[in-house]
Every structure is written in C-alpha cells, then in structure tokens.
Design a protein around this nucleic acid. Structure first.
Length: 837
DNA sequence: TGATCCCGCCAACGT
DNA sequence: ACGTTGGCGGGATCA
C-alpha cells in the first residue's frame, strides 16, 4: 500500500492542485483565483449559498472536465506547469491551496454557509452529497466527514442514498440534552476522572503492570457501545437509511459532545476523549496506533464542531505541558427542560435489552438505526445490523418506519415540539444572526457578551419567561431557585484577563445576567460566594491573590466537602431538581412514571421522561414512544417497560456524578487548581437521599451527606485492603489521601508550583487507591453478570475486568439493586490553566 | 518536533 | 458488479 501510495499521492496532488486552480473553469488556463476566493471568503451565512447553488450545474460540468484531465497525468502536469509559468512564484504559491485552505473546518464552514441555521420547516432542505461535493470542490469523502458529525447532532438526517435532509439547529438543544443525559448515564464524568487519575499516576509510575491493570479495569468499565442517540422526530429519518457500522464518526461525535456536556469545566482534552472513546469499544488495548487514530478522528470531529461554534480549541496546561483540548462554547444544556413537553405523555418504552423487542419495535422505527441485516418488512432501509455479538442483544429491528416519514412532516413535528420552547429564543437568535453574523463574531471575539451568549446558544438561554404553557410546572426559574447549578448551565461571558503570570491570558467567565450570580453557590469554593462583579474585579487581582484564593478554596473544600457533597453538588442537584420539577409537572402526564420513580429512587435522576435509555444504548424519546403507541402498545405496557428500564439502567449514574467546582466554569483561572476530589459512590449506596432530598445543592452536603459517603469510602478502602478494617477515613475526599500524606496539595496548589514531592506522594496514594478502587472496589460485591452475552459487555459501563459489572451500570442483569461496589476515587483534576487560542 | 489533519485506499454495504 | 459510505492510518503541513 505504501508503495503505491507514494505514486498515487503525487498524482493526487497534482490533481488537487488542478482542481483547486480551476474551480469552475475550463481546462488548463483558467486562473484559479476566481473560484478559490469565492468559497473561501465570506462564510456569510446562507446568503451566498444560493449563488453557489445556482452556479452548481455549470460547475459540475467543469468538474467533470477536470476529472478527465486529472486522469491524464501528463496533462495535469502540464497544466500545473502552465500555471506556474503564468503565475509568479508567489502567486503560484497562493494559488496553491495551503493545507489550511483545505481544512475540514473551512470546508465545513462552507458547507454550513449553504444552509440556514434554522430552516423553515416548509422548505425542503435536502442535501445532495454529490452536489455539495461538487460545489465545494471536494471529494465526497470529505463531505461525509462533515455530514456524519452533523448527523450526530441531528442537524441533518439521511433521507436516502446520497441525500440528506437539513434540519439546522432546530433540534440542537434537544439533541444536546439527550446527549448530556446519556453522557451522565454513562458516567462519563467518572471516566474522565479516572483517566486523569491514571495519567497522574503515570507520571511517576512506570510500572507497566499497574498501568495495564488500570487500563484494563478502566476499559472494562465502560460500556462499549452506546449507539447513536436518536431524537424524537428525527428517528425515522435517521433510521431510514441505515448506515453501516454506526460506530464511528457519528457515534464518536456524540460521545465527544457528551464529554463536554458532562464535564464541569466544559473542557475536554483530546487525549482524555480519545481514551474514553477507545475504552468504550475496545477494552484496554492501549494500542498506541489506535490511540493515534482516535485522535485523528477527534480532530475531524472537532473541526466540524468548531465550525458549528460548539467548541473551540484551547490548550490545557498541566504539569506535563500543554495539551490540546477543546472547550464547549455551545449552548448550555439545560437539564431537561425540553423534555417536558415532548415527553410527557407517555411513556417511554424502555426495555431491557433482552426483552425489549416489542417496545423496541414501536420505538424502533424511530430509533434505531439498527444494524441488523434483516430487513424488516417495510423498510429495508431502516434496518440496521447490530454488530456481530452485540447484535443479538442489541439488534433491534426497527419496525418499519412508515416509509412515509417525509422530512417535511417530520420536521414539522419536530418543530412543533421544539418551537414552543425554543422557538422564541431561536428566532431571536436567528434574527440577530441574520442581521450580522460577522458582527456577532466580532463581538464574540472581543469578549463574550450577553448578546453572544444569546446568539450562540439561543436554546440554552435561560428562559427568562416561561415559554411554554405546556410545562407549567416547570418554572422557568426552577433551576436557579433550587440552587441547582445554574452556574454551569447558564451561559457565561468570558472576559479576558491579562494575566500576569505566565503571560497567558486567562479568562473569567461572567454570567451575563446578574441574576445568575446566584449560581455562585458552591460549597466547595470560597470564590463562589463572590458576586460576579467581584469576579470581574479579580482581573486586577494579581496572581498571588488568585493563588491564595485557590488555596482557600482548597481549604474550604477540605473542610466542607465531603464526598457526598461532591456528588451532590453540581450535577446531582440539577438532576434532581429537574427530576423533581419535572415530575411535578409531568405528574399528570405520567403517573406511571412517577410510580416507577418511586420504585427506584436511583432512577429519579436519570428519569428523564423524555428519554429512555436502552440497553443497547439507544435513547428513546418519549415522543417516540408516542409513536410507539400508534404501533399499538398500550400505555401500560409501555409503562411497564419503562419501569423496567429505569430500574435496570438508569439508576446510579446520575447520582454518581462527581462534583467539580462549578465555579471553575465561572472562573477560569489558571491559578485555580480546581481539584475537588471526587469519590464515586454509587448513588444507591449513598442513599441518594441527601442529594435527592436536598433540592438545593447548597444545602446539601453539610450534614447528612458526609456520613454515607465516608462509610462507603471506608468500606471500599477496607475492602481493598488499603486500610485496616478498623480504620476510618474521613469522608472528606481530600483527607482520604491524607492517610498517607497531607493531601492538601491535591486539592489545591498554586497553579504554577505544585509541590512535586507532594504530588508524588499523592500520586502514590492515588495509585494505591486506584488500584484498590479499581480492582477491589470495583469488583467487589458483584453480582454475577448476566450472561447476556456479547452485549453484556457492551452495556455495562463499569464492568470490572473480571467481569461482573459492578458499576453503577446499566447492566440489565442487575436486579435493580445497586451495590456499593464502586468505590472509585476521583483524582483531582489537574488542569491548571486553559489558554484559549 | 509535536500537533494537526489531508488524502485517498479499500473494505463494508447497498442496490 | 457497481456505487455509496466511511474506517483508517500514512505521511504531509503547520506551529
């Protein structure tokens, strides 16, 4: 291959050159410029699209001509030479598209420019890959890259071969919510922590075995595939044309996004993301090449996400050095809001994998893109195959979706749902955008402003007013009042601070609206209490101060935090609040569900009416269920299913979420070493109670929480053998390490200087804990995993290498009871600073 | 150099 | 068989 490659490469090169040079032109001579510029320049939204489109046909023709030429090497070369001759060196150079000019990101911009962010449902926004490829002058392959990720966000859906439907951002917020939810269910947060921890250990730990061991455990812990997350309304289309292995890009993209949505500072390094993603489908296999490949893919995804302005590249500086990372700049994802309306009624039909079939079908039509080979009756296209092993289980055949689903109809439906909630903001955004995207960009660059926030994340925008009547119960304010992490959810405006320190500029994110100030709550951080204004003021504060603050933070944390709290703090509260609120709201609608909820408290968190988690990894929106109803399932049935599902899968996950300093988000200062230690406890074990009960995050912790967590911790440690039976470790995470050494460092140290020794010590500790936690804690009490076979592995997130899924997981097998098994400890985040750009 | 990531071979999948 | 998708990773660019 390689051999061939070289030669091919050259040919290719020349070809590309040619292509680039002669965009729409005729053969040789045409100066490249014209076209080149055209596409490249203004991405002004949709406007010039039309022009491009109109130009399409001719272009295509020219393209073909080009192709012919390219086939003939000599000609190509000649052409090239001609160009060179005609153009001076510089010019030639210019004409020669630099790599950047051919970047996927740029291409994506062009692509996006063709379609409106919020297309009217009426118009048919279909995309013909060939056309696009032609118009943009790229190989179709590249278009696939873009479309695949767009598909993962449900911004497009495949209609048929070579054809996609453009949905724009109408479904974005819902998609993100769904993804967030799944991410939470997958315990991505924990996984991230785990990885970080591992890295930490690696720093000074050479012991291969240990690493491997860890890796193994880690890898095993994940569930492998969660497939594509569907959205209500979108399902059909998505499913309509199956795609073959729904494995990668699409899914990878969703997972990647999930990572952002679940991490507290919404920053994800490629490395971590790659590891997590790898872990999912391939246990261990730290294979370097695989890792590399994953990274490559992530870059691809990141490029398009960047084009969508959902993320932006940043660098995270750690002790190690700078690491590429991306920061979420998209809309904040509100917990479940959306769902309220949609879901409501019904029921979800979740079912355990094994039995799922029936409900599956109903929903399935929408949902899945199952991979099964078999076709189902009506729509062969819908059917997807499940992977070999997994297939059995997961394979879900999708019922035929009615072939009927036409994009238009679907869109309407979707839009209908969406509209109420999101519409307003969306529209606003739209208008704004329309006015001047450029202006917007500029603004953004300058510094975040409320406007930006709005623009960037219309959907996310805190709903000032309760938009939809539909969700009466859901008070708009709900989140805030509850004290539920508003901070994290609310959009923040970054302010760039001239940082003295490293010369790196840091940004402090301020919430656009004063109201948000509330958010500051954060048990662990001193800073939190500070009003935004104060934060702002911080700019002037020198690093010292900052450091100090940091320290304090740490102290506080130590003093105050307890594992429980950690758990509770951010996510939990939110979730809970959501849940509760939702419940109330929904109640009428879904009594059944509530019942279910009662049954399993753990479920509460996850209980998002709108979505159901399939073992297979599919999310089924209630809406879909609704569809399912059509299919003929009774609500009861569904309900039953749902209950099952919830019981089985949803449980612990949400509860486990480790808390990181919410503030981080609010204040992004390098100095802040935010490293709350997180202890993963199974929610259940903790008795989700405190968390759940305490609607407010704030209140949370202090009292009740600590105990449970500490006990768990102790249990774990003891179990593992890290500490003698009699010994008790304080609940406080920090302290946990303490036994070995002083842990303060873990918690906080001035960004720049970590005490190396301490670090080492802590590392060691971690290592021990890790080991213990992983091998011991994880595996501990387990229930034998069910032989679900192939899939089982997939589904369990935190399965121990050994086998039983200890994790909080979603394993189908568990009786719903949660075990304490997981005693994973979180390593403090080591992120020291984030530099943008 | 390491970070990025373009490019296109070629294998699954459809049809 | 042939066209569509898209996994994958070599190796070119960029910083």
């Amino acid at each position: 291959r390689s051999v061939l490659k070289t030669p091919l490469k050259q040919a290719a090169t020349s070809h590309s050159v040619l292509t680039e040079l002669q965009p729409d032109c005729q053969p040789l001579t045409t100066p490249p410029k014209p076209k080149e510029t055209l596409p490249a320049d203004p991405w002004t939204p949709t406007s010039n699209l039309k022009m491009l489109i109109s130009a399409a046909s001719p272009e295509i023709r020219s393209r073909e001509q080009r192709k012919e030429l390219s086939d003939n090497p000599s000609e190509v070369l000649q052409a090239k030479h001609c160009l060179q001759e005609h153009l001076s060196g510089d010019e030639y150079e210019k004409s020669q598209p630099s790599r950047k000019e051919k970047s996927l990101g740029l291409l994506c911009h062009k692509f996006l420019a063709r379609y409106p962010d919020y297309p009217s449902t009426a118009e048919n926004n279909y995309i013909c890959l060939d056309e696009v490829a032609e118009e943009l002058n790229v190989e179709r392959r590249r278009i696939y890259d873009i479309v695949n990720v767009l598909e993962s966000l449900h911004m497009v859906s495949r209609l048929a071969k070579n054809r996609y439907t453009w949905h724009g951002r109408h479904n974005l917020s819902k998609t993100l919510q769904a993804l967030k939810k799944v991410g939470e269910e997958n315990k991505y947060t924990q996984q991230i922590q785990m990885i970080k921890k591992r890295e930490y250990e690696h720093e000074f730990d050479f012991d291969g075995e240990r690493n491997e061991e860890m890796a193994r455990s880690f890898g095993s812990s994940e569930h492998s595939e969660m497939s594509f997350v569907e959205l209500p309304g979108m399902e059909f289309r998505a499913a309509s044309v199956n795609s073959r292995k729904d494995k990668s890009l699409r899914v990878m993209s969703q997972k990647f996004v999930m990572l952002f949505l679940v991490s507290t500072p919404q920053i994800v390094s490629l490395e971590v993301a790659a590891k997590i993603l790898i872990g999912e489908d391939q246990l261990e296999d730290l294979d370097k090449s695989k890792f590399k490949t994953k990274i490559r893919r992530l870059y691809d995804i990141a490029n398009v996400l960047s084009s969508l302005e959902l993320i932006k590249k940043v660098h995270v500086t750690e002790e190690r050095g700078r690491k590429p990372a991306f920061k979420w700049t998209g809309p904040e994802v509100l917990p479940n809001i959306q769902g309220t309306k949609l879901e409501t009624t019904s029921t979800t039909s979740p079912r355990p994998i094994s039995e799922s079939i029936p409900s599956k079908e109903q929903c399935s039509k929408n949902l899945f893109p199952s991979r099964g080979k078999q076709n189902f009756t009506r729509h062969p296209s819908l059917i997807k195959l499940v992977k070999s092993i997994e297939n059995d289980r997961r394979k879900i055949q999708s019922a035929p979706t009615s072939p009927v689903k036409i994009s238009a109809s679907t869109d309407q439906n979707v839009s209908a749902f969406t509209s109420k909630m999101a519409q307003v903001p969306v529209i606003a955004k739209h208008q704004l955008e329309g006015q001047s995207k450029k202006a917007k960009e500029m603004k953004m660059k300058l510094s975040g402003s409320a406007l930006d926030c709005n623009l960037s994340s219309p959907e996310a925008v805190p709903k000032p007013q309760p938009p939809r009547p539909a969700a009466p119960a859901e008070q708009p304010a709900l989140p805030q009042p509850l004290g539920v992490c508003p901070p994290s959810h609310s959009p923040v405006s970054p302010v760039i601070l001239p940082q003295t320190h490293s010369g790196v500029s840091y940004a402090i994110y301020l919430h656009p609206s004063p109201a948000h100030t509330v958010t500051t709550y954060s048990p662990s951080f001193m800073l939190q209490p500070l009003p935004r204004a104060n934060l702002t003021g911080m700019k002037s504060i020198n690093s010292k101060v900052v450091n100090k603050i940091t320290t304090e933070e740490g102290d506080n944390q130590i003093a105050t935090d307890d594992p429980t709290k950690c758990l509770t703090a951010k996510e939990r509260p939110n979730i809970k609040s959501e849940t509760s609120s939702q419940r109330c709201l929904k109640r009428s609608q879904a009594l059944q569900e509530s019942n279910l909820i009662k049954r399993c408290r753990s479920d509460e968190e996850s209980l998002d009416t709108s979505l159901t988690f399939f073992p297979s990894g599919y999310l089924i929106p209630l809406t879909q269920c609704t569809h399912g109803n059509k299919a003929g399932f009774s609500d009861e049935e569904k309900a039953g299913i749902c209950s099952l599902q919830h019981t089985t899968y949803s449980s612990p996950i949400a509860g486990v979420i480790p808390m990181t300093a919410p503030e981080l988000k609010a204040v992004n200062i390098p100095a802040f070493h935010i490293t709350p230690l997180n202890i993963m406890l199974s929610p259940t074990s903790i008795a989700a109670a405190p968390v759940l009960s305490g609607s407010s995050l704030n209140s949370s912790n202090t009292s009740s929480a600590p105990n449970p967590s500490s006990s768990v911790l102790n249990f774990t440690l003891q179990h593992v053998g890290l500490i003698p039976t009699g010994v008790q470790v304080p609940a406080n995470p920090v302290l946990q390490h303490v036994p070995v050494s002083s842990q303060p460092e873990n918690v906080s140290h001035s960004s720049e200087n970590l005490n190396l020794q301490e670090e080492k010590v802590s590392k060691n500790i971690w290592r021990l804990l890790d080991r213990a936690g992983l091998s011991g804690g994880y595996s501990a009490p387990c229930v034998p995993k069910e032989p679900q076979g192939p899939q089982a592995a997939t589904e369990n997130f935190f399965r121990t290498p050994g086998g039983p899924n200890t994790g909080p997981s979603l394993s189908a097998n568990s009786d719903g009871t949660n075990r304490i098994s997981q005693g994973a400890l979180y390593i403090p985040q080591r992120k020291l600073e984030v530099s943008e750009d």
